[in-house]
Design a binder for these strands. Sequence first.
DNA 1: ACATATGTACGCGAATCGCGTAAAATTCGC
DNA 2: GCGAATTTTACGCGATTCGCGTACATATGT
Lengths: 120, 120
Amino acid sequence: MFLNRLTELRKSKRWSLQYIADRLGIAKSTYAGYESGYREPSLEATKMLADLYGTSVDFLLGRVTEPNHPPAIQRTEHIELLELDQVTITVDGKSLSSGEIKHVIAFIRVLREMDGTAKK
Amino acid sequence: MFLNRLTELRKSKRWSLQYIADRLGIAKSTYAGYESGYREPSLEATKMLADLYGTSVDFLLGRVTEPNHPPAIQRTEHIELLELDQVTITVDGKSLSSGEIKHVIAFIRVLREMDGTAKK
DNA sequence: ACATATGTACGCGAATCGCGTAAAATTCGC
DNA sequence: GCGAATTTTACGCGATTCGCGTACATATGT
């Protein structure tokens, strides 16, 4: 079995088998076979798994111990939380609704406000 | 075809199909199938190929352009809030710190939990 | 306790693999 | 150049493996 890191990765993100299967467009039982070692994914599926989990194929295969070696050039993209059109933010595999985003923004503002006043 | 870098790698080292096949312990025609795209190697064989060529599986799969750099991470449309090394989320123009992100995740979890129990 | 969601196990048809074989193409000595 | 040896490409066959649906087991939430 070469993908024994899959389960811990998925659980660390609180994703279900069904969620992963849907994202990959495969059956739940198929993905379950990957985690249990009963089946081996194709290279294509393995690549998609690395994308989904935000890691490298080498890490999934246990060829490397670091889950995310930063790329040589760190190109960070900035997204303002209020202007989310093309990108979906998820928590525990469920995308944030527009209502939740508003709450988050309010929450962050209060959080920062408290930080400012408390530290005076 | 996902392994089109194999041929150039092999030729850059002036190796023959037979040589690689022997090193891997497979038939020459089998390895030839990998290069031509006629067949797809198992994950195990893919790992051995990366070892042989002294590169990463991610490079063999074209997931990364640099043969010797550590594998990088690819961005998707969906971004799990836990994996924000690649993208920076901002609120009011100020990027979320890792601590704030943790708070947001906890906040969302509680929010959803409450939503479930206290249905008016 | 019940209903729903999540995880596990397995049989079947279909797709793919690895191999041997052999023809095409390239390289090499002369 | 020219043939022999090496390398590369192509393909059929048997066996393996895949992906799916289904069914069952376990966990979670109302």
